[in-house]
Every structure is written in C-alpha cells, then in structure tokens.
Amino acid sequence: MKKLLNRHETYVFIAVVVFSIIITIINPNFFTLENLFDLLKSYSLMGTFAIGMLFVLISGGIDISFTAIATVAGYTIAVLLLNVGDHLNIYMVFLIAGSIGIALGFLNAVIIHVFRIPSIITTIATLNIFYGLLTVITKGKWLYGFPTWFGDFATTRVFTLYSAHGNPYGLSIITVIWIGLVFISWFLLRFTILGRSLYAMGGNVNSAKRAGFNIFGNTAFVYSYMGLMAGIGSVIQALLVQTVAPNSLVGKEMDVIAAVVLGGASLTGGTGSVIGTILGVTLIAIMGNGLTLMHVPALWYKVVIGLVILISVGVSAYRRKMSAHKRVIIEND
C-alpha cells in the first residue's frame, strides 16, 4: 500500500477516476462503450507517439523531431498509395513507414552520440531539416483519395455492437494495433536487459559505461524506436483521417511530451513506465472528450490542460521536496 502511494501512477489513476466520475454524473453518455471505443481509436495516434517518447525520456534524452519524421513517413506512403496503391497491402504500408521512421531516428542518434550534441538541440535542428525539405519537395500539397482497401482497413472492427439508434460501433483494428504496441513496449522495458539498461543509462550514464552497457547501441535503439513509433503513427493518422497534409502534425510535439510527463516520466531520465504513459494520455483524452460532453466550449480545452499539467508537476515537485527534506535528517539514535 505504502509502495503504491509512492508511485506517481497512482495519483494519475486517481485523477482519471475522479474526472471520469464527474463527467459521467454530468453527462452519462461519457461512460458508454460507444464513447470509450471511439476515444480509444482517436487517441491511438497520441498514444503511439507517447510510447516512443517514453523510451527516449527514460534513456535521458528528448526527441522534438518525431512529428517531422512522421510527416515524412506519412507523405511517402501517401504518394505510394496514390501511385501504386493497388500493388500494396497494409503490411507493406506499415513496413515502409516504419523503416523510414527508423532510418531518420537512427540519423538523430548518430548525430547525438558521435558529435555529443545535446538531444534537444539535435532534434530541433533535424525537425526543421526534415520538415523544411519535405515541404519544399511536396510544395505543401495535401494528398487524399487513397485506394478503397486503405479506407476499408481503417473502419475494420474486431467486433461490432449496435447502439440504441442502430449505429454500429466496436473495437477498432487501429486500437488493437496500438494495444499491441503497448504490450511489446511494456515487455521490452520490463523483461529485457535492453529495457533495463535504458533505465540504468537514464539513471547514471557513467555507471552504465563502467558496467559495460553499449551506450551507442542504446541511444540508437531509443531514437530508432521513437522513429518507428512515428512511422506507425503516420499510418494511423492516414488511416484515421484518410488525408495526408505536411502541416498536420508538426507543432504538436509539446502535447505529446506533456502527456508522457503527466504519466510520471522525468525529463532528467531514468523514470517512467508504460502504464503511466497510458494513464497520462488517458487523462488528456478524457479531459478533451469530457469538456465536450459537459458542453464546455472547446476554447477552454487548453486552459484546463495547462492547469492540469501545472498542478501535476507542482504536486510532484512538492513531493520531491518533501522526500529530499526527509533525507537530510541524520541518524542519531
């Protein structure tokens, strides 16, 4: 119990529950399967990005460029879908987008590791490079009109239920993909030496070097993994809106970082968990959704999110201060 109270995740979970109850009291439509399935589907994009970001933050780095990576990957597959779409299938689309993401993420890792440039600087620069070049080459054109099989896949449901009005709803295949990523990531972080060494490296990089961890390997892995998630995210985005626009993702970096931080990851590295990240994304999702359901004008959304972030980081700063205070008390029995 005491252990549970020490965990950041517990507090986020309580916040999620409290908000859910409040929203449900005001508008019972919130706590319906239809709404929940819909929420899960529409926030799977942020969820995917957030998982990639979690890995980077745990290792002690940060990646600002993932939106640009996703844009490049998304645009590439959109062009392919429009030109040779009939020869492609969904696996190939994920494979291509994922590979582009991995390649660009790996490039980030090389610059960060080889030239010792801080990750925030490197990725701000590469964000501008990837995004700038892409927009120049594509002239900012929106792409749409993908093959029907691509649209069909997006609306595939694992099982289908019908609402009182006869509208079909159910668990979307996109949500399933996201849940799959969550499980893989959870397993990686919890049960592999690679995952534990990311925590170790984020906790103390010098000790990690002395203990014989492959620092470049770990760096390359986290940025490539972030890239992979950006690539997969770009396909999810294309599936969700059936349109690819060069400027639809860039600028949303901070929202994702905020969600991961809400979930307990630290920007100094070494802490964070998959479950916390999911809770962080959930909190943001139900607040956005809840405000709509409570008929609060959408304009207030950012105000609420901003306040929640400030309260959350304020509370954890306060708890850190208190535990640091406890630690200075010396032992004299």
């Binding site: 901070m254 905020a258 304009l299 959304y301 901003g306 972030i309 400030l310 980081v313």
Partner: peptide, 23 residues
C-alpha cells in the same frame, strides 16, 4: 518557489496562456 523544473513549468504555462488567449 515551487521548484518545478523550468521546462515543465513553462510548458504548462505555454498551454495555459495559449488557452487564455483563445478564450
């Protein structure tokens, strides 16, 4: 005073102020 790291404090403020401006 609250000892929040600058990046998080100003990230929260960025979102909050953006919201206030919208309102």
């Amino acid at each position: 005073v609250l000892d929040i790291s600058p990046i998080l404090a100003t990230l929260g403020m960025m979102i909050l102020l953006g919201g206030v401006s919208l309102v």
